[in-house]
């Protein structure tokens, strides 16, 4: 019986899709059966981040409107047979799917998977409502910036109002050097402001750019700090008790050092 987890943020561009791709991949690497759903209808992206854009035949709207069965629309990952993607429609808009459709769809998927991860669109309107409709739990991604944290707080309120239980936080793109000199909100600052539980912290990492360029999740790259952080976060999501990776300036430099070799070798 799957857990349906929606990844959302309010603000765009904070890393929802990257987070969904990496958590989904990491969970599948650990042996779970995982489906990731791109709920950003009209702005399809999870497929390119995962490198599956050439395999799309049917999409979520085709399934909802009965033109395709779920099994036909699900795309298997290139590397992990236990991971699959239900892509968003690119030529339709968010009103093509209703919250009830999403509940029915995710319920239909529960029996076949351990995790169903839903990648929410930015914003607080219909697309977001659709994305959380079927969720058992919600994960909020934010970055340590005033605009992103403010939007995350709005989302916390909306998720609580929708009775989805207390959402958990992934703080993404932390720059340890800036935090160290007092020029970036720290993990503690953000937790104090949002007052929700922390699921994971992810450092800012150039390896995300290169892995996204290739259409491969960063969790495959053992040299990537962000990849390791996503791997730990996925294990926490699966219920393991994994201590938070200390994101320090020293580790940042060390990670970059390793990163140089990693990139050269790749």
């Amino acid at each position: 019986m799957a857990r349906v987890v929606t990844i959302t943020s309010g603000k765009g561009g904070v890393g929802k899709t990257t987070t969904t791709a990496n958590l989904g991949t990491a969970l599948a690497m650990q042996g779970a059966k995982v489906a990731v759903i791109d709920a950003d209808i009209g702005l399809r992206n999870l497929d390119v981040v995962m490198g599956l854009e050439n395999r799309i035949v049917y999409d979520i709207v085709d399934v909802v409107e009965g033109r395709a069965r779920l099994r036909q629309a699900l795309i298997k990952d290139k590397r992990l047979p236990e991971l699959c993607l239900l892509p968003a429609a690119q030529t339709r808009d968010k009103d093509s799917v209703t919250p009830d459709d999403m509940v029915a769809l995710t319920d239909q998927m529960r029996a076949d998977f351990d995790f169903v991860l839903v990648d929410s669109p930015a914003g607080i309107e219909g697309g977001f409502r659709n994305a959380i409709a079927g969720a058992d739990e919600v994960v909020i991604v934010t970055t340590p910036e005033v605009s992103a944290v403010r939007d995350a707080d709005r989302i916390v309120g909306l998720v609580e109002a929708a009775q989805k239980g207390p959402p958990r936080l992934i703080l993404n793109r932390i720059k340890p050097k800036l935090v160290g000199r007092g020029d970036m909100l720290s993990v503690e600052d953000v937790l104090e402001i949002l007052a929700i539980d922390l699921l994971g912290t992810v450092p800012d990492d150039e390896a995300i750019v290169t892995s996204t360029n290739r259409g491969e999740a960063a969790v495959f790259d053992t040299q990537s700090q962000a990849g390791r952080a996503f791997l730990n976060t996925a294990r926490r999501l699966a219920g393991e008790d994994i201590p938070l990776m200390a994101i320090t300036e020293q580790q940042g430099v060390f990670g970059r050092f390793l990163g140089i070799f990693g990139r050269k070798r790749a």
């Binding site: 005033v146 403010r150 909100l185 104090e192």
Partner: peptide
């Protein structure tokens, strides 16, 4: 960062 926190 402290300024950001207070403003938030």
């Amino acid at each position: 960062a402290e300024l950001a926190k207070q403003r938030l």
